[in-house]
Design a protein around this nucleic acid. Structure first.
Lengths: 199, 199, 199, 199
DNA sequence: AGCTAATCGAGACGGTACGTCCAGTCTTCTA
DNA sequence: TAGAAGACTGGACGTACCGTCTCGATTAGCT
């Protein structure tokens, strides 16, 4: 009724029409992640995602600008099982458990990482999104290390960025190139080696 | 002499028919590399390669099983400007110059690496080929480090594989994710940090 | 009325989604017919049809199973300018005008007939379709002749199928082999000869 | 020596070098005919013919200008089992046995006719060759009928060309369109009908 | 016996078409 | 207005075939 609208000019139109169905978002992201994890994971098509989600392709494109964006969001969603930074006491144990948790989480969504990278290499938007995601993750580790420097557990001249490059570099290297699993042993070994030699 | 023939019955006829035109191979690899290095490098099509090389698609598929195989060989060819391992004296300087040379060579064909990775993520054959290429490259560095252990410049318990993972991991990380250049400074810095902390 | 629906449970949902664009069908058939009629009519490619129609090849293959099917339908469409059977009075004049009309119509789309035959000889589906088309056309003449027998203008023992074989055989023979035009004179001459000798 | 050439301009060079291997011709024509008669008869490739004949494609193209030419010659060769025109006495019986013999011979090489027509529709050279072949065959029947006119067995005003069009037209019609066999019954029936009504 | 010239098998090659597949956009109808 | 169904363009995919070409081996006649 127009008269009603006239009477409430402050919130002119809180919403008109059918609301966005939150189930759509979930279904799409779940299907994307599942398909990516399945066989033929690196060549998931939008048609396949739409079909698996019981959603029309048009609807997907209404909410995400491209396939890369869908995959990125699917990855972010899955990786949300938060790698809560521990702060148990010493830097050595903190970094160690951070890496163990990270490797474990990443390993569980490894196909998503690979699928997203495949997309990011063709679609610069997806690449940008992935960079942001990676940078955000890096921030957690950086906080940990910076704290270590402040506590005197690491010398002040330590190049934290280089250290992080080595950590995340190794991780992606296993993920994308050698395809070897990111085990707990590897995490522990890497953490100890880095901290010991830096200290 | 019939007796000779009887002695060598294995190779009755080494080759018949028109020989493979070496210009084709060169033209295809050159076109592939050039297109990969150009804009839209991540989405090079076989049609484009064929057209640029002045070669029919059929001919390409006669010699290479897939697009990935062409790109891989193009990369290998370009990377052939051999990073000759120096052995100038101390391990520290040797590793340093190895990394400087490697980073420089890789940086110059960075788009090829990215394009090939894009292919490897969809085509498992290409992925396998790339793993082989990477493993071969790793061998050079491994020889250098093993020599260092033998000379007592590195303690015998040093985990060389982990060290190489950190080096090549960082390299690919910059190449694929951050897209930051692989500078000489970075190479030197990385080499010194690793050797110092291991020694 | 729900009761009506209950009585007709076969069509639960008449149609969903975007409708087939009728312009596509027309454009494809028109382009196919035009290309077939042009020079190089015997070697029309799907790419050429798609390009000429401003339609993607994919869309053509969505609606027609093969090239032969497209050409067949193009021919049927063009031949639709109906050779209405006259029934002016005597059998002699009726058959005469039928043949004149048929030859005239066929002559105008002769290249389509040839192009379709070229396809039918490679594609058994197209051959089957063409046989159906030919059989349908034959029905018109059969009705005319049967009527003539009933009216006593032809003896009851006349082999109508043989007569039609001679008529259509001659037509195709000119069309495919001698490439001589199907003139009005030929039609008249053939009609008179056949009717006179049968009567 | 140029002077030698100048001295003998009439028979410059009778022959030098290796002679043409007659087995090649036979093998090619046999393979072509056999493949055409087999399944997938309408889509015989030159590669297939060459392979079946144990002959290189190059050799085929040395002696025949195109695929159509090969098929044409294969047909001519196979149809050489000569339909010797009988002249047993009356026109009626002569034409009858001519048609029976012709239909029988044609039926046995029907796939060749169809394969050649497929080629003739794309290759105007092949079409021309086929027209010549058809015209030559027609000459036999024409001689028979002309003789009948001279003997008074047919009225002088009979249109022999039209009669032949009807005969050969029907034959091709069955061959190419209806794909029904050219039986002896059909030959007899056609011959009697035509002669009776013309006389 | 050696030279010369043609034949031939094997197969590489360019060009062109095939029929399939996917990303992203647009259209129609239902809720 | 959200959403499902699905038509549509554009462009790449890998395969097939035609007719041409190149290579080396073979063979026949002439010197």
């Amino acid at each position: 009724m127009p008269s009603d609208v006239a009477r409430e000019p402050v919130a002119p139109r809180p919403h008109t029409g059918r609301r966005r169905n939150p189930a759509v978002r979930e279904a799409v992201l779940k299907s994307a992640a599942d398909l990516l994890a399945g066989p033929d994971g690196l060549t998931v098509s939008m048609d396949a995602i739409a079909q698996a989600a019981g959603v029309s392709k048009h609807t997907i494109y209404r909410w995400w600008p491209s396939k890369g964006a869908v995959l990125l969001e699917a990855l972010v969603e899955r990786a949300q099982q938060e790698t809560s930074i521990p702060r148990t006491g010493t830097l050595a144990t903190d970094v160690e458990s951070f890496l163990v948790a990270t490797f474990d989480a990443v390993e569980r969504v490894a196909p998503l990482f690979r699928g997203l990278m495949a997309e990011a290499l063709r679609d610069s938007k997806a690449a940008e999104g992935m960079r942001e995601f990676v940078a955000a993750r890096r921030q957690g580790l950086r906080a940990l290390l910076t704290h270590g420097v402040e506590q005197g557990e690491l010398p002040p001249e330590t190049d934290l960025e280089l250290m992080m490059d080595q950590i995340y570099g190794l991780m992606w290297y296993h993920l994308l190139i050698t395809h070897t699993p990111l085990t707990e042993e590897l995490a522990v070994h890497l953490a100890r080696t880095l901290i010991r030699s830096a200290a």
